[in-house]
């Protein structure tokens, strides 16, 4: 491969007043992902570079970041697919930066807690048996349950940038995952948070979340489905 230039956002809370861009130049090996390049830097060039990583195969959701202006997982972004040898890596937007590429995800998790992210049931389940759910009903969860909480969607949402109380695409997708589950009986518990000016009605259908999601989910569709559900509930 050719020599690449990695332009990486650096910020050390104990030293820096503000963030800066640091450049690293080297020739990556064929097949390397952005995470491979970050690991190469950390393990060979600059041990102080800070980022989150764990599973490195796209399921844990730790390494969401902004790569050449677009959100994605570092571990599953092939360098050769970027179409350039200049790679700018920044922390996820819209969240406070803790250090370098590490952001504070608490505001993101707080939105999840607000929609009560767990199955709510009132009918007791059968003893020593599963609840039944038809394959058709189960299919309604496809495209909703696969979320890995990486934050790429909410961080890409201009509406969230402007309104930090907006629940954001992630929390609303999660709400849909439960509200469209045939086993769930938690409509009443969730409706106030969702049917709110900072809830489903705040979304401007900009579709950045759909572009950003590394799992190819469609939070905007989920939000639209929730709007229909709420309207039906009111009628």
């Amino acid at each position: 491969m050719a020599e690449y230039t990695f332009r990486i956002f650096r910020y050390d809370p104990e030293k820096d007043e503000t963030g800066r861009i640091q450049e690293y130049r080297f020739e990556p090996e064929p097949g390397w992902t952005v995470l491979d390049a970050l690991n190469y830097i950390k393990w060979n060039l600059d041990g102080s570079l800070t980022y989150r990583r764990a599973c490195r195969h796209g399921i844990c959701g730790s390494c969401g970041m902004t790569i050449n202006g677009k959100n994605g997982l570092a571990c599953e972004t092939q360098l050769k697919d970027l179409g350039t040898t200049v790679v700018t890596i920044e922390p996820l937007r819209g969240f406070p930066v803790i250090k370098d590429l590490v952001v504070d995800m608490e505001p993101f998790y707080d939105k999840l807690y607000a929609i009560k992210p767990y199955l709510i049931t009132k009918t007791p389940p059968p003893t020593d048996k599963e609840r039944l759910q038809s394959p058709e009903d189960r299919k309604k969860l496809d495209g909703k349950y696969e979320c890995i909480l990486c934050g790429c969607c909410t961080s890409s949402c201009p509406t969230y940038w402007a309104d930090k109380n907006f629940l954001g695409p992630n929390a609303l997708l999660k709400a849909a995952r439960f509200l469209f589950d045939s086993r769930d009986e938690g409509f009443e518990e969730r409706v106030n948070a969702i049917d709110d000016k900072h809830g489903i009605w705040r979304c401007h259908t900009i579709f950045n979340c759909v572009e950003a999601c590394p799992k190819e989910l469609n939070p905007t569709q989920a939000i639209v489905d929730l709007r229909k559900l709420m309207l039906r509930g009111r009628l």
Partner: peptide
């Protein structure tokens, strides 16, 4: 936000550094 201008962006009140 233009690529490469994020440093300034992070220094605004909107997304403050911890």
């Amino acid at each position: 936000f233009k690529v490469g201008e994020c440093a300034k962006y992070y220094n605004t009140e909107d997304a403050k550094v911890v």
